[in-house]
Write a protein that binds this DNA or RNA. Structure first.
Lengths: 202, 202, 202, 202
DNA sequence: GATGAATGAGTGTTCATTCAT
DNA sequence: AATGAATGAACACTCATTCAT
């Protein structure tokens, strides 16, 4: 049970390296397998195909990020909408949750978010942005309901969602250590929270 | 001198279409040349190689964006630093300049900024971010000189530069018409200017 | 002795399905074994190789068809040669024997006769034709002996043998039910018997 | 203009050899191209893919056989139906036409008819049988109209069509020289014509 | 100015087969 | 009795690039 999956592990390990360096498309299965001391055929014993191998690297991180986000968003909607501006602590909570998920396997996460072009995981960041936007829209509508005379700026809403998600991607790719990440994200979140209220409605 | 470069033009035109659809890497020279009614060899008469052809599409736009930025940044530094906060009109000027350059040949610009992966133009956005950051650093230092007790948050400075540049990329890819772009960028710039002063120094 | 060969049976069963659908060559041992709830290695415990497994499906049917034919041909030669033209009842006997052998395991038979390309059983129909031809030759010689001035048309003899054998193959593949097959083969045999006498000698 | 297509010709020549020996499926493009003193890539300059190369070998023969048959069948239907039994000369005409088409490029024809399994030309013989059957059906209906009390035996009609077409395939594969083929086909046709009238109706 | 021909190295993928356990 | 792991050779196909003409 110890070394049963040694080859599989080695394969994933080497795939990680290769995907990180070259991206999904330019990564060579031959290079991966031979780096693992195996042949290409071995990959096809453990994985369905190139996408499957990529999945072996990123599937678990992907799951974690998805459930984390979904969980947070559903909780978030239940809290008092009116209390949006006071919930800065909550935003820190979200940020910390995200960072802890993101940095659990930073390499895999970077591959998932930045090196997936050409794979079936392509466009994952866009999907996250979409999810964020849906959440933001709900929030903005509730917010607008108590701000008479103001209406939502659609473009700002979309761009803001984009910035929010990419703030984490940027952090992940530019800050190596989790601890520093936690520190650096704070002013980012503060700025985002403060701006949100001022600029989403016009 | 009239129709001398007709083939060259046709090649660039078709390359544009192909690069837009497939990106640099997946674009096929065979597809491009045959769409132009020529053969692959013809490409090598006019251009050095695949990167050269890509350059034929994006070099001019790239020049225009670079000189526009350089020009603005050098002018900007000459104006009174202390007047930063009052220069919101100036920021609108920058935004309009950028938009006018970006939308002069929107397709080529999108290719340059989003479809260059794998080419020697890869990372152009990062280079723009770097340039922005240098400018921001200078600005921040001048700003910090008159704000005793405050010091620059390096990460925020970098991230901010990233957001500023990508605000334009996002605009370019999400808003088709230049006129609407001019309108949409306004609140974005406002938010950025306002936040800049509050969050770059800590 | 009950369930000892359960796996073997399952393997043959699944192989039958696969060989029927894909033919010997395109059949996948992995597909067969996994359909049987086993692994490819299991196949190699029970059978020598892919050809061996194919044999597991068709060997018995092949034996039955061979002995049936051999038995009939040897009997047939013992009967009075001169009585050939009167032996139409006998031909019906042969046809019924063939059909009963062919339809005892129709699937296996079709695999043997039509899906063996690439296996060591390839060309089985040709071998049957050869056997038929040897029999026809003997018959024709005896027949010619009592028909002075006539001699055997070698090509007709060969083609006729081919048609005779393939009449059964055609029947097998185009008529599902044995009962209908028995009915349909009658006029075919009649035509063949009648023509035989007229066209083998010239 | 002489040796312009030398490589293409060589490729087709070698493909012919390979397809003949191994059949479409097992034929190796690598083997073909290297036998022609070229690389696999060269094949893809001249042909779309493996099927295209196969087409380069069999397309012309296929066209010839199709037009020959279609032409004959349409002519045949215009002749007096009642004269069927007297038209044995006509059948010889058909046979000679077929043979001349079949033997114009015997190798290509054998490949088309017997080695196409796995290619997009697979099942060509069946299609010919279908065409023959349609023709036979028309003939049989006209024939039945003047034979009161008799009706068509569907199975015989189908099997007969099968035998008629395969008589030519058999000839092609068993008789090398066209002249001998013309001689050998005569009694075959005679037998078929004679039997046709007796056994299609019952 | 451009073609037509061809290369050579590469791609992901499939497969029957082997064998230690 | 059967598995799980792995091999190695083959496959069709694609591509940017070259170059004589």
């Amino acid at each position: 049970m110890d070394n049963e999956y040694e080859s599989r592990k080695k394969l994933i390990e080497c795939a990680k390296k290769e995907f990180m360096e070259k991206g999904f498309e330019k990564a060579s299965l031959r290079a991966i397998s031979s780096a693992a001391g195996l042949t290409t055929g071995a990959i096809y014993f453990f994985f369905k195909d190139k996408n499957g191998l990529f999945g072996g690297v990123v599937d678990e991180p992907l799951q974690r990020i998805m459930t984390a986000i979904e969980q947070h968003f559903s909780e978030d909607m239940e809290t008092d909408i009116a209390g949006y501006q006071h919930s800065s602590g909550d935003h820190d909570g979200f940020a910390e949750l995200m960072i802890s998920v993101l940095y659990a396997d930073r390499d895999a996460m970077m591959i998932l978010l930045e090196k997936a072009s050409g794979s079936k995981y392509e466009g994952i960041v866009d999907r996250l942005v979409d999810r964020m936007e849906r959440h933001n829209t709900a929030l903005a509508k509730a917010y607008a309901a108590v701000c008479p005379g103001k209406k939502i700026n659609e473009y700002m809403l979309h761009w803001f969602s984009h910035v929010q998600i990419n703030a984490f991607v940027h952090l992940l790719t530019h800050v190596e250590e989790k601890e520093r990440a936690v520190r650096e994200i704070k002013p980012v979140m503060d700025m985002l929270v403060e701006s949100w209220m001022k600029f989403i409605l016009e």
